[in-house]
């Protein structure tokens, strides 16, 4: 069963490798992965779709949460969440089928982002299954080339982000300790 994981991670080199490492260490194949900065440019939001043995889903989330660069990993598979995907599709369209293609695109709320004598580039977004249908339909009109973005998802449940506060370094702690010991006991 496909698991949808949403992660908030520090935007640091190696962070992606650590996260995918949790999956590759168990031999899981990633279906899709998207990552981009959040409003805070030091953080990234990542959505991973991966086929995980249901019994191990919690384990995978815990392993990701254990990573130093991961602020929060959550399983969106069975919670209220919105998942969307975008597809860019190039279709070769001879003159006689251009109108039909545009009509079909309209049904799927796809936009034309490039038009030439050879054909169109269409952009569609939405529910991934709906996009599968869109691609199937377009295949009927001739040779197509497809690039999918992979799923991006957002939870509909508010979740408190728990961050660890700064801690003093060892030298600082010891200095504080020795200052305390300097206080004469009355």
């Amino acid at each position: 069963m496909l698991q949808v994981i949403s992660l908030l991670v520090e935007n640091k080199p190696g962070a992606l490798m650590r996260i995918t490492g949790v999956l590759s260490a168990r031999g899981y194949n990633i279906e899709s992965l998207t990552v981009a900065r959040t409003l805070d440019p030091t953080l990234s939001r990542m959505t991973i779709v991966v086929d995980v043995d249901p019994a191990l889903r919690r384990q995978v989330i815990k392993q990701m949460n254990r990573l130093v660069n991961v602020l929060q990993a959550s399983d969106l598979t069975e919670e209220r969440a919105v998942a969307r995907e975008m597809v860019l599709l190039r279709v070769r369209a001879p003159l006689e089928s251009r109108t039909a293609i545009l009509k079909e695109a309209e049904i799927f709320s796809a936009r034309v982002v490039d038009s030439s004598v050879e054909g169109f580039v269409l952009e569609a977004s939405g529910d991934p299954e709906k996009l599968d249908e869109f691609i199937d339909v377009m295949r009927a009109y001739g040779e197509i080339e497809v690039t999918r973005s992979g799923i991006v998802a957002v939870s509909l449940e508010s979740r408190r982000l728990r961050l660890s506060p700064p801690v003093p370094t060892r030298a600082e702690r010891e200095d504080a300790g020795s200052r305390l010991m300097d206080v004469p006991s009355s």
Partner: peptide
């Protein structure tokens, strides 16, 4: 300059 504190917001213990 000596560092006095460690900031690891994602390191949960």
């Amino acid at each position: 300059a000596p560092v006095s504190s460690i900031h690891l917001p994602g390191y949960k213990v």
